[in-house]
Nucleic acid binder design. Structure first.
Lengths: 180, 180
DNA sequence: ACCAATGGTGGGTGATGACCCACTGATTTT
DNA sequence: AAAATCAGTGGGTCATCACCCACCATTGGT
């Protein structure tokens, strides 16, 4: 049984898609055990890296719909990992900041992520992993540029962004997009 | 701007997931222009590589639900790219074979796939692409093993030429899984 | 003070993808 | 020839996302 059609294995893009998919799936599954999802990790990471921020900033930075961010933050707040405090200067805004437990949680999630990574990258030795990481990082920074304007996919490409997900126009440079 | 949280960029698995996602999305978008989807490509490729087969074989090989395969084949048949003929020996079975136009279509799709690939891998030179391909291929053969039960797709093999890894036939495993 | 714009929410919507089950022919068993 | 089995279908279900819109609170003009 088996054999993946060789024609497909010749396509780097196919391999990329496939491995990426499994990596993602495994990570998601792992996080699910903690009742967290990819977006939760992304948000916590963003807060840890860039400090407390207003929701709107977070949303644009993560390229997530503000409306969806709300839900993620609801979860995180409920778990006591982030705190929402209204900005004193502009009471419309809400500053989101990491709590101590949030920081701990993040550390744990990152640990999980690395564990999954070790599983996925198991067949590679340290140097190879580093090489892979380097290559992927290069790809990451690069704007795929325009591509196929397919319905649903405007192909935006804004200068910097990296990867628009087809199907949805991605405005500017989003970030992570754990979700789909 | 953007700035993806650095913490995430440190995760190879994150980069993998992300680039893989965009690769997949772009390819899907491209195929969509031809009114085809990833599974269509996978099926055509499987038929081209392994010759005419009974649906059930195809399904297990591609790790697709038999029920879903039917729909894909319906499309391909409608487009005149494959032909379904009942097996003379066992009339329950249906042999699926590629038609000439199917072969042409496949060639076109693969061309599209490579085009997308060129866009995605743009920042890398030939050697780097080769290196990336090699690494991914290694990962591909590797059974993700346990961990998170990601059902679905096992791995392996294609005996094909391009593989860096010298000769090992391959065991077998499911294949592609454009989908899940 | 009034009005337009803005941040944040809540509540949907639509598309996609995997999975499942019941049903029909054909074949094999016994 | 009846029973069990199998290939192929058809018709759902469920879960996941990204996206959108109407709405409240709050501001910034002017």
């Amino acid at each position: 049984m088996d054999t993946v059609p060789p024609s497909l294995l010749d396509l780097t893009s196919f391999l990329l898609a496939r491995t990426g998919r499994t990596a993602r799936a495994r990570l998601a599954a792992r996080l699910a055990e903690r009742d967290q999802r990819l977006w939760h990790l992304a948000v916590l990471a963003a807060l840890a890296d860039s400090g407390p921020q207003v929701q709107r900033e977070l949303a644009t930075r993560l390229a997530i719909d503000p409306s969806d961010l709300v839900k993620v933050l609801d979860d995180l707040t409920r778990a006591g990992q982030v705190e929402r405090t209204r900005s004193t200067t502009d009471r419309r805004r809400i500053r989101v900041s990491l709590t101590t437990t949030g920081r701990t949680a993040l550390a744990d999630l990152l640990r999980q992520a690395r564990a999954v990574q070790d599983e996925v990258l198991a067949p590679l030795d340290a140097e190879e992993r580093a090489a892979l990481h380097r290559l992927l990082l290069r790809l990451h920074r690069h704007p795929p540029a325009s591509g196929t304007p397919t319905p649903g996919t405007p192909t935006p490409d804004t200068t910097t962004s990296d990867a628009p997900t087809p199907g949805h126009p991605t405005p500017d440079t989003p970030i992570s997009e754990p979700g789909r």
